[in-house]
């Protein structure tokens, strides 16, 4: 009888001990995973912001386009950006919402006026019409140049 009781008490003690260990490990794992996610997101956001900041140095029109794109982001876009910022495989898709989309827009607009200005320089007319198209579309600039 006492042997049974001793075994039972030892079993209950081991259950309690292992449960405590698992609870501590789970709490530590939660903190660790949160840290990993935060680190990944912070790294991602800093890289995207640096990309967005480096591109507009070519033209001033491009910076204006980037700013308007960023301010129109809704809570859903912010959530999508947060969601995908931590994942490595979805980086190209995630940045399509905010970061790289704005940078690609600015890059495209930065190259377009350069080509139109060169074409207008040869024709000698249409330089004023090509400048406002930096924020809108490239085909208008080329038609004005030709």
């Amino acid at each position: 009888m006492t042997r049974h009781r001793t075994e039972r008490d030892a079993g209950l003690r081991s259950v309690r001990r292992i449960t405590r260990i698992v609870a501590a490990a789970a709490a530590a794992l939660t903190a660790l995973v949160a840290g990993v996610i935060a680190h990944g997101t912070g790294h991602k956001s800093s890289s995207s912001s640096s990309a967005a900041a480096s591109t507009p140095t070519t033209t001033t029109k491009a910076t204006k386009t980037t700013k308007t794109t960023t301010t129109t982001s809704t809570a859903a876009e912010e959530r999508a950006d947060r969601e995908t910022a931590g994942s490595s495989s979805d980086d190209s898709e995630s940045d399509g919402d905010e970061g790289v989309s704005s940078s690609t827009t600015s890059t495209g607009t930065a190259t377009t006026p350069a080509t139109t200005s060169s074409s207008s320089a040869t024709s000698g007319s249409g330089t004023t019409s090509s400048a406002p198209t930096a924020s809108s579309a490239a085909p208008v600039a080329t038609s004005g140049g030709s």
Partner: peptide, 12 residues
């Protein structure tokens, strides 16, 4: 912080 906690608690 809440966002990170939600994700990490889901994994755990």
């Amino acid at each position: 912080g809440v966002w990170y906690l939600m994700r990490s608690s889901g994994v755990v």
